[in-house]
Design a protein around this nucleic acid. Sequence first.
DNA 1: TTTTTAAATGCAACATTGTTGCATTTAATA
DNA 2: TATTAAATGCAACAATGTTGCATTTAAAAA
Lengths: 138, 138
Amino acid sequence: MNETNNWAEALRTRNLKATTNRVGVLQTIEEFDKAIPHSKIQDRLQKVDRVTLYRTLNSLIESGMIHKVSVENDEIFYAICSQKCTTEEHNHQHVHFKCTNCNEVSCVQSNSIETLNLPGYKIESFEIQAKGICSNCS
Amino acid sequence: MNETNNWAEALRTRNLKATTNRVGVLQTIEEFDKAIPHSKIQDRLQKVDRVTLYRTLNSLIESGMIHKVSVENDEIFYAICSQKCTTEEHNHQHVHFKCTNCNEVSCVQSNSIETLNLPGYKIESFEIQAKGICSNCS
DNA sequence: TTTTTAAATGCAACATTGTTGCATTTAATA
DNA sequence: TATTAAATGCAACAATGTTGCATTTAAAAA
């Protein structure tokens, strides 16, 4: 989230040029309050070249400004990073939830996520993907 | 797991014809004790048509004999269902773990998985994907 | 403000992954 | 052994993602 909506500033902070495309992509993702599918970003930014969109999304992920959300084998979704993610590490403490009714995908904060423990395994990161009925639909 | 390795019988039980291709796919997945990437199944069964492999994998998933394992945006992996999965429902109580050292993906049983709870959301199923160092590599 | 320059972009071409239709083959049943 | 519905293989297509390269643009220097 970026209260002042000054994505240009946020981009420069991370040593990325504040181009029209990048700001447009960030605004598009932000406006959609759920996680937004790749195709929907492209639909809303038809002037942006397909290849450029791929490269833009990758650089924003790399810089820790957005993250991918994949649930099942669906299309890939994207969401703004609400935590302090960096180039070095994305660190999300939320569940990626897909509603089987409205098909929307969202990042849901959970205070019940504690660390995962698998004897013999050294866990660096983990992610929870859930399916069910979202609060809007139930 | 199928002790007698009689996959033909298991297929007929589920009203699937016990074809050479299907038995071959099941054996290939079983032999690889980790989850096996799609491309590796194809490599080992070069005589099987590409399209047939896709359709075979789908029917085996549909029948509850195997399940997909996807971690991050990698290639899709497959594993034999060790639980009593059915056409109606796959029901796995394990973590999908990807080792960042050897890149192998495995299904790891965990007794620490309890139900996930998100206030306002009705959770039908959830899956945990973890990354780190596996027991072999550490 | 203008010039410089490295990063970002757009385009064409390619690569990979997954799907559909249809004629042929095969496993299971009669 | 004959029958038949399911499974297969092939060709063609569709969707998704990548690479190389010439052009444009944002940011910094002059």
